[in-house]
Write a protein that binds this DNA or RNA. Sequence first.
DNA 1: GGTGAAAGCGAGGACCA
DNA 2: TGGTCCTCGCTTTCACC
Lengths: 157, 157
Amino acid sequence: MPHPVTPLDAVDRALLGALQQDGRATVGELAERVHLSPSPCWRRVRQLEDSGIISGYHAHLDRHHVGLGVLGFVQIGLYNHTAEITAAFEREVQALPQVLACHNLSGRYDYQLEVVAPDLEFFAEFVRTSIRSLPGVREISTSFSLKEVKRTVALPV
Amino acid sequence: MPHPVTPLDAVDRALLGALQQDGRATVGELAERVHLSPSPCWRRVRQLEDSGIISGYHAHLDRHHVGLGVLGFVQIGLYNHTAEITAAFEREVQALPQVLACHNLSGRYDYQLEVVAPDLEFFAEFVRTSIRSLPGVREISTSFSLKEVKRTVALPV
DNA sequence: GGTGAAAGCGAGGACCA
DNA sequence: TGGTCCTCGCTTTCACC
């Protein structure tokens, strides 16, 4: 059981919701939002952090503002599924900063990568070179995001 | 031009990188990392926030710890692509907290949704009811994440 | 869980080079 | 732009109810 599920009460859930919305909320603000005084509120937040439920705090950037106008999904089929090939594939994927996420999928393809790039030309070149040459790659299917309809950083808690 | 790309120098990039890693880094810590004194460092961060490059700060949760063990991608084809149908579809998707992300895609399907759920049963039920009944849905294809090989919150800047 | 308080520090502004 | 104070407020962490 690699992932213990800690039972959360309503106050914990409210704290998690608030911190997902605003990761820089102060203990005072949080205390007000969950109707608790600062001290116990702070103790709860500490516990949520220490138990690993809150894995970190991050600034979120607007990718268009930093010149990453293109986001695409790259689905990949491998030649074979030996432990060596998949391990090598997964290791090399980690090293590509343009790859924001990579999932080992059920279904038709083996992996789906979420990739960002400054423009379509760069994206195509990246797929043609960096991704094409990953270990064991047999088949590639690419879809672009035409519109980011929804993107939330908040899990439903 | 809805998305201005602000030119960033090396120090700005370093600040963005640091804040993506640790959204609660203090100005003092940041100043040290980018070899600047706190005040100009603080001004730069302010500017990155005000210009919208930094769109916010968020706590990141471990989804397994909060009982969301299943993540899947749901690809959807619509019956038709009138403005009314797509607008209705996109509006209703916003209201589903289990849907973390939704992209309008190029290629075979119209949309791809990223969905979380406590377990496979819940996931299947969610797709069968909530997603199936979204406006205009004709075709659904689902893939589960068997393994989250990579997930970063940091854009390459 | 709540209160109160002490100590430290970080944010943010004024001002200069 | 960057650097150096300075000050206020808040965070954090006690001990105790």
